[in-house]
Amino acid sequence: MSKIDRPLSPHVEIYKWPFPAILSISHRATGAGLALGAILVTVWLFAALSGDDAFALVQRFRESIIGRLMLFGWLFAFVYHLLNGVRHMRWDAGYGFDLKSTYRSGWIMVCGTVIISVLTWIIVR
């Protein structure tokens, strides 16, 4: 396949990262992370299907330090992605497009993510 060396307009290496850009790429990163975490949902359901030993193994892993870190990461990513997804769909519906609202909804979303995931984690542990 022939490679065409077209010039790229300056982007990530040139500009500073404005707050909305950080939020935007985090939506993509959390989406990809959630997709990988989906493997664990399947593993967990099959463990429940296959037997007490398999289920106990999964539960023991979940309660290990790595397991807890992964589950909190997944929960945090999920809440972030959910709230930012709602923010996205509000834009899609045509609201909140100006710069001021974008910053405001961004901060509301970030605070909401921290509050909801920490509160949920207190219940889950």
Partner: peptide, 21 residues
């Protein structure tokens, strides 16, 4: 990837629900 994981997960839930354990 998603078709495989998705169908496998649904199979697991249905098998549990209908008592195939």
């Amino acid at each position: 990837f998603f078709l495989g994981l998705g169908f496998a997960s649904i199979y697991a839930v249905l098998a549990i629900s209908f008592g195939k354990i």
